[in-house]
């Protein structure tokens, strides 16, 4: 009986998680447009609903009613598969993210995460890497020159940032003596990792921007030179799959930054509930990513590789060395 209850709770948590995650891009598109508008001294969407609050809904209806167009020259199977890979891979990562401590509901202890894997860090980095394959496959399968160029840029980008990103986390793992994300958060209950690992954070943050394909590293879709890059040929719901995937990666990276370096659910001053603290911190990072997007130009793809290999990689290695020396 107890086992069934545990499974039920698990399924319920999964349902809530997926539902919330798939809904989140709706307010986020509105928020991004509003933030952009206020940075650029204009009102932004104002017509649909109060201050354009229903704008994402209108956009969604528009995307749903668009013709689902597959180019003749495209590889139909891969073309259909690509957006699904991106979305599913990103959603899967969230299984390992701890959103808060254990809470007690009607005398039952419920953990605010789905699993506490002992190799969660590895899992997150590995699965988060998979969503890029959606981009690569999508660009390739479109059989369009712009899309292929976007996909090629993604390949170049992938190998340049994934390695420093992985190395940047090593310092955190050394501090917590564990690869479990829950253990990492618990290890930060007194002092956050950002104090011990400022260099690691900088490397992780910059590599994260590249992972999320945000400006200044939004090369695969650089509308300035590639039209729309890898999703040039996508329309309707397939396009919105990529969009949702992009926003989810954004939330994921904000969450990872919080979990690894900013103490997860640990409060700072106010004794708010842990979940609220976690969400506040994530919101801050999401806002930071959006702020970046509307301030910076984008790097050229060879410049990104230079940064990845010549700056971030040595820095992340140095970070491991320094952490090792200090810890021993």
């Amino acid at each position: 009986m107890v086992e069934i209850f545990v499974v039920l709770v698990m399924l319920l948590k999964l349902a809530v998680l997926v539902a919330v995650l798939l809904m989140l891009p709706i307010p986020l598109t509105w928020l991004e447009r509003k933030i952009a508008a206020h940075i650029q001294q204009r009102p932004g969407p104002m017509r649909v609903g109060w201050h354009g609050l229903l704008q994402p809904l209108a956009d969604g209806i528009k995307l749903l009613s668009k013709e689902d167009h597959i180019p003749d020259a495209a590889d139909r199977f891969l073309f259909t598969l690509a957006p699904i890979i991106t979305l599913v891979a990103t959603l899967t990562v969230f299984v390992a993210i701890p959103f808060g401590e254990t809470i007690t509901v009607y005398g039952t202890e419920i953990t605010l995460y789905l699993t506490d894997m002992n190799v969660a860090v590895m899992y997150v980095l590995a699965i988060a890497g998979i969503d890029v394959f959606g981009v690569i496959i999508g660009g390739w399968a479109s059989n369009s020159k712009y899309a292929v160029l976007g996909a090629l840029r993604t390949c170049a980008q992938l190998i340049s940032y994934e390695i420093p990103m992985g190395f940047a986390v090593v310092g955190v793992v050394m501090l917590a003596q564990s690869m479990s994300l829950v253990a990492i958060v618990e290890a930060q209950s007194e002092l956050w990792n950002i104090v011990y690992q400022p260099l690691g954070f900088v490397v992780f943050f910059i590599a994260g921007l590249a992972e999320a394909q945000r400006i200044p590293f939004d090369l695969p879709e650089a509308e300035g030179d590639l039209g729309a890059g890898y999703h040039t040929e996508y329309s309707g719901m397939r396009f919105s799959f990529f969009m949702i995937g992009e926003y989810l990666v954004l939330i994921l990276l904000a969450a990872l930054n919080v979990v690894l370096f900013f103490g997860g659910w640990n409060p700072l001053f106010l004794p708010l509930p842990p979940l609220i603290w976690f969400l506040l911190k994530v919101a801050f990072f999401v806002w930071l990513f959006m702020w970046f997007r509307f301030t910076f130009p984008r790097y050229r793809y060879d410049q990104l590789m230079t940064i990845g290999w010549k700056v971030l990689l040595p820095l992340s290695l140095a970070n491991i060395l320094i952490s090792g020396v200090i810890l021993s």
């Binding site: 940075i39 650029q40 001294q41 400006i215 650089a222 300035g224 509307f294 301030t295 130009p297 984008r298």
Partner: peptide, 16 residues
């Protein structure tokens, strides 16, 4: 020019 390079905001400032 900055907008072509990805920095959208500069154009909206000059448009003001």
């Amino acid at each position: 020019l900055p907008m072509d390079l990805g920095a959208m905001t500069a154009l909206l400032y000059t448009m003001r």
